[in-house]
């Protein structure tokens, strides 16, 4: 089991909220470095829950989980923060900070880890130009369109060149044209070495891009390869 090659390891992981029933049970998953997966499942199947464990916002209620080779049972708060810096997240609801400008929103991950302002200015304006939002640098996310917000959220997720990119329905609110364009950005990043997981409902995306699917159903996880063959529970290592 090449631990070093696995960005995320889950063994018998279950998650529940408060005293409720388990939303996910006995999840077994090894996410290989440099891999690209879609995450699918009906609404309420637990896609966001699975992702939130991956971006370390929730701890599994049971089971074992490692991120970047670190067992979460033996990781303290500050170490968790350091791990989070290597993960980029696009939230389903964006979670931009409205009293900050688009620029400051994108700069957030860099400021949090104490990068100097000159470097931040350079990097953020470069990236905003690249996502064609340099004209809106000073605008509040409030005043931007859904697609523009989405691009800011994505810019924020990738500004720190994350090793793992988790996107929760990043193409949920945009038309097919923009969706395809954003997908191409993720593919680009993946080619540069970033491990990617994208939760989506869009059959079109799944069909257009031939990547394996992590499919959630009845509280458990299946891996579905693009060819259509189903391998139960976990990636075959062989």
């Amino acid at each position: 089991m090449g631990e070093d090659n696995n960005i995320i390891e889950m063994q018998n992981v279950g998650i529940r909220y408060d005293q409720g029933p388990e939303v996910l049970s006995d999840i077994k998953l090894s996410l290989k470095k440099g891999s690209f997966h879609f995450l699918t499942g009906k609404s309420g199947a637990g896609k966001t829950s699975l992702l939130s464990m991956m971006y370390l916002a929730q701890k599994p209620s049971r089971g074992n989980m490692s991120v970047f080779g670190r067992n979460l049972n033996f990781t303290n708060r500050d170490e968790l923060a350091s791990l989070r810096r290597r993960i980029g997240v696009v939230f389903q609801d964006f979670r931009l900070i409205n009293h900050l400008s688009a620029f400051d929103n994108v700069a957030l991950p860099l400021r949090v880890c104490g990068m100097n302002e000159r470097e931040i200015r350079k990097r953020v304006s470069e990236l905003l130009k690249w996502v064609e939002l340099d004209a809106h640098m000073q605008d509040s996310p409030d005043t931007l369109s859904g697609g523009e917000k989405q691009r800011i959220a994505i810019a924020r997720a990738v500004i720190n060149r994350p090793e793992l990119l988790l996107a929760d329905e990043p193409t949920g609110n945009v038309d097919n044209f923009i969706a395809t364009k954003l997908m191409k950005l993720f593919v680009e990043l993946n080619k540069l070495g970033t491990t990617v997981v994208i939760a989506t409902h869009s059959e079109k995306l799944i069909n257009d891009f031939c990547y394996p699917r992590l499919h959630l159903q009845n509280r458990s996880l299946q891996i579905i390869n693009p060819a259509g063959s189903t391998i139960l529970r976990g990636l075959a290592d062989a």
């Binding site: 916002a57 708060r77 923060a81 989070r84 810096r85 957030l108 991950p109």
Partner: peptide, 12 residues
């Protein structure tokens, strides 16, 4: 906002 900062890797 604090939750967002945390997700970005902000320490306490």
């Amino acid at each position: 906002i604090i939750e967002i900062l945390h997700t970005m890797g902000a320490k306490d």
